[in-house]
Design a protein around this nucleic acid. Structure first.
Lengths: 230, 230
DNA sequence: TTTAAAACATGATAATTATCACATTAGGAA
DNA sequence: TTCCTAATGTGATAATTATCATGTTTTAAA
């Protein structure tokens, strides 16, 4: 995969796709490819961002540490997604922390380059707008989910999401994106022990199997049924 | 208050403020002032919107009916805020329902007028973008709140929010925006009975008094302390 | 004003979820 | 490898929250 923005396929997934040759030249001249190791923090809540990060590879959690010390994952971002665009658009400090869930490659694009594009390319602004509006809908839906569904339902939903979004290992059938029990709990908004307990329950019922951190879904329909219950 | 967009002070609160005379002329020519009675639904989840609504007066809840029949309030919008802009931007059906919490006046602005402004006024698009980005931050924070805080903390927070956002009656000291217990429960994501029980608890402790649906905050500091606990 | 319906309120109880304690296992460093 | 630490897993229990039942009060309509 080329590291030249002009040839980069990754940007097809985000607002950068509408940039013209001239725009891309500046982005390309100023961007920096970075390797991020699993567990590394790309940026931290409250930090002033000097640019955005375009994810080339790997996945990251966007989360916030709560007063009680736990953290709540608001979103998982992966290939093609941009981190930090909300903060840059609003000229605010980061509202969430971004932590690598596995080894990643990201392109750092300095704020100035993005601000220039925003100032001069209306099409780009509109793309950003549509993107942000979509994220808002997803966040709104998550609010409804958190208050409507039980922890069990949210866990089932999270497993289905992981399968749909990141797929399964073609050999073993295990979910490709491997989360620690702690992260999985943080994603569905519950205590780690509760999450583990429910996974055990799913195992007992034959919905899934586990091997270490790996999870394999056996009965998709059972999990889907669970998410619908009320 | 004038009903001519050119002289309308309401639009100072939202993205419409950056429109020029020419833009405003088209908006003004096509907009329609509407009265909405308390309890009326302005639009419903899933509905195709033919425009946006600019709130001149009153307040509305933006909510979603859950599978179990309850509804969860995602946001309360009032004077100066625009309803439906997300759906128009994304060309999607409404994701939330908008229901008047009291008698309202709203200006309906047809989709075409807004789409024209988006197509021709980059400044307007940028304003929308910043607006949407801010709403996204608020939604993200709500996600963290819902999973971090107890119902009691969220109720305390909601009361403080109502005071800050809508103020108190200068005579009685009651919160200006009056919500039914059911709506208050829907806003904090709990059962109506739980909400009522906690209000009784707050009363017993002397934090608030109630008279019918009216609520008066007596001990602001106590409620603030509650929201911080862990 | 009367009356019916809706909203409010509270008790009893069940279900869900968190917390604490502790055992086991896995994974990485010396 | 061996050891240490962190993660996983489970039990016991407490706390929180939901649900159901039922009575009371408000509200609004006839």
């Amino acid at each position: 995969m080329s590291t030249k923005c002009e040839n980069c396929v990754i940007r097809q997934y985000n607002a950068l796709r509408v940039l013209n040759t001239e725009d891309l030249a500046e982005i390309n001249a100023t961007k920096k490819l970075q390797s991020v190791s699993k567990g590394d923090m790309i940026f931290k809540e409250g930090q002033r961002l000097s640019g955005i990060y375009c994810v080339r590879n790997g996945a990251t959690k966007l989360s916030k540490i709560t007063a009680s010390g736990r953290d709540q994952i608001v979103k998982i971002a992966s290939k093609g997604e941009i981190l930090g665009q909300r903060s840059i658009v609003c000229d605010e400090n980061a509202n969430l922390s971004a932590t690598a869930l596995n080894d990643m490659e990201v392109c750092f694009i300095p704020k100035s380059a993005i601000k220039n594009r925003i100032a001069h390319n209306p099409l780009f602004v509109k793309e950003l707008l549509v993107n942000m509006a979509t994220e808002l809908r997803i966040a709104d839906d998550m609010i409804v989910n958190l208050s409507e569904k039980t922890v069990k339902q949210r866990l089932a939903q999270a497993l289905l999401y992981l399968k749909k979004q990141f797929g399964e290992d073609p050999l073993t059938g295990d979910l490709t994106l491997v989360l620690s029990r702690e992260d999985l709990a943080a994603a569905i908004g519950t205590a780690t022990e509760s999450c583990i307990r429910l996974l055990s329950d799913f195992k007992k019922k034959g919905y899934i199997t586990t091997q270490g951190k790996n999870i394999k879904i056996l009965q998709l329909d059972a999990l889907e049924e669970l998410t619908k219950d009320f």
